[in-house]
């Protein structure tokens, strides 16, 4: 495990804030989102798009999160 790095800290915080904002929106707009996705048909776009957006944002956050803590892949 390497030493924690400041280089990854700023992106980790920024992606973290974005991720929290996304989850807050999901909580806030819970009802319309569930209603839309329950309709089926072309509304399949709703959960699929949400999944892609969350994977991008939260994926970046979790990546930088471990890096900022010094948990990085072994250098070859």
């Amino acid at each position: 495990m390497d030493k924690p790095t400041k280089k990854a800290l700023v992106p980790a915080i920024l992606w973290g804030i974005t991720s929290v904002a996304l989850y807050a929106s999901l909580y806030y707009f819970e009802k319309p989102i569930l209603e839309a996705s329950a309709k089926g048909g072309w509304y399949f776009i709703v959960p699929v798009t949400i999944a892609f957006i969350f994977s991008g944002v939260h994926g970046n956050f979790t990546g930088y999160f471990w890096e900022a803590l010094g948990v990085r892949a072994k250098k070859k």
Binding site: L34, S37, G40, G41, Y43, F44, P47, I50, A51
Partner: peptide, 8 residues
């Protein structure tokens, strides 16, 4: 999701 079964 086409049948609306996904709880996102």
């Amino acid at each position: 999701a086409l049948d609306g079964y996904v709880d996102v």
